[in-house]
C-alpha cells in the first residue's frame, strides 16, 4: 500500500521538476528534514555556547605564574580557594547580588502599573504605540544612555538641581548604579508582564468585580497571582543583566566595584585570565541557582 502510494507520488513529481521532487523526497524522509533544519543551530549551541562555557570552567582551574605571567595548565582549586577565603570577594559578590535584587525590585514596582495600563486600560490602538515607546530606548546605544545619566547625576547637574541644589542628588556611587541599571533594564521587565496581562482575560477582572470585589482586592487576589510567572520571567532578565554589568558601574558608580569590574580588572590590568574565569563562574552559579528556584513557579514557560 505504502509503496504504491510512494511510486505514484514519485511518478507525479517527476513531471513537476527537481525542486518539487526534492520537496516530495524530504516529505517522506522526516529524519533528513529534521537534520537539515537543526544542524546549524545545534552546532552553534554546542560549539559556540556550551563550548565557551566549558572552556571558562576549565580555565578557571588553571593558574598564572606570578613571575612570568604565563598560564600554568595544571588543574587546581587555588582560584576558588582565594575567592572563598578573601573577604573582598565575598563583599563584592554580596554587593552585586544586592544591586541585582534592588534593580529587579524597582523594575517590578515600576513595570506592574505601566504594563497594567498598557494591557488593560489603554485603548487597543494606542497599545501598539506604547509598546513601541517602551522599546525605543533599546535602539539607543547602551553607552550613550549610561553617559547621559552621568551628565544627569553630575555634581550640580539636573538631578541635583531638581532636588534643590548641588549635593542633594545621589551623586555617583551605589545608588546611582542601581538607578541607572533599573532604567536600562526596565523594558525587559515591562514586556513579559505586559504579555502576561494581555493574556489575562478581561472577564476575570469583571468576574471578580461582579462577585463583590473592589479594585484592590481584584488586584491582590486575581491579577497578581496570575502574573507572578510573568514577573519572574522579567526578573530573570533584569537580575542576570544587572549581575553581569560592569560598564554602568564604571560610568556612574564612583568607586563602587561589582563582580564584573573584578573580572574585567583581572583580564586587563592583572593579566590573570584563569582568575577572571573563576570569578566569572560566580554569576553563572548564582543564575543557575536562581533558575532552578524559579523553574518550579512555571515562569520558564513564560519566556
Amino acid at each position: 500500500m505504502t509503496s504504491t502510494l510512494q511510486r505514484s507520488a514519485g511518478g507525479a513529481s517527476a513531471v513537476r521538476g527537481p525542486v518539487r521532487r526534492l520537496s516530495a523526497w524530504l516529505h517522506r524522509h522526516a529524519g533528513v528534514r529534521l537534520a537539515a533544519l537543526l544542524t546549524a543551530p545545534l552546532l552553534w549551541l554546542v560549539v559556540a555556547y556550551l563550548g565557551s562555557l566549558a572552556v571558562l570552567l576549565v580555565s578557571a582551574l588553571w593558574t598564572v605564574n606570578g613571575f612570568t605571567g604565563a598560564v600554568v595548565h595544571q588543574p587546581t582549586l587555588d582560584n576558588f580557594r582565594t575567592i572563598l577565603s578573601d573577604e573582598v570577594y565575598r563583599a563584592v559578590t554580596l554587593r552585586s547580588v544586592g544591586v541585582a535584587a534592588a534593580v529587579t525590585a524597582i523594575d517590578a514596582l515600576i513595570a506592574l502599573p505601566m504594563a497594567f495600563y498598557m494591557a488593560k486600560v489603554a485603548r487597543p490602538r494606542y497599545r501598539r504605540w506604547l509598546v513601541v515607546a517602551i522599546l525605543t530606548p533599546l535602539w539607543a546605544s547602551y553607552l550613550v544612555k549610561a553617559y547621559a545619566w552621568r551628565v544627569l547625576l553630575a555634581n550640580g547637574g539636573p538631578v541635583d538641581w531638581l532636588l534643590g541644589g548641588p549635593g542633594n542628588g545621589p551623586g555617583y556611587g551605589l545608588t546611582a548604579t542601581v538607578l541607572v541599571l533599573a532604567y536600562l533594564w526596565l523594558p525587559y521587565m515591562i514586556l513579559p508582564i505586559y504579555a502576561g496581562l494581555e493574556r489575562l482575560p478581561d472577564s476575570l477582572l469583571e468576574a471578580s468585580g461582579d462577585l463583590g470585589a473592589r479594585a484592590g482586592r481584584t488586584l491582590r487576589a486575581v491579577v497578581l497571582p496570575v502574573i507572578v510567572p510573568s514577573v519572574i520571567a522579567g526578573s530573570i532578565f533584569t537580575f542576570s543583566l544587572s549581575l553581569g554589568d560592569y560598564i554602568t558601574v564604571q560610568i556612574v558608580g564612583g568607586k563602587t566595584q561589582l563582580i564584573g569590574n573584578l573580572v574585567y580588572a583581572n583580564i586587563g590590568a592583572a593579566n590573570n585570565l584563569p582568575f577572571a574565569a573563576a570569578l566569572a563562574t560566580i554569576p553563572v552559579l548564582i543564575m543557575v541557582i536562581y533558575l532552578v528556584a524559579v523553574r518550579r513557579s512555571g515562569a520558564l514557560e513564560e519566556l
Binding site: S203, L204, E206, A207, S208, D210, L211, A221
Partner: peptide, 13 residues
C-alpha cells in the same frame, strides 16, 4: 446581580 460569563471566567490559580 451576578454573571455567568461566556468563557466562564474561572480564576485559573
Amino acid at each position: 446581580v451576578n454573571t455567568v460569563f461566556q468563557d466562564y471566567a474561572l480564576f485559573p490559580h
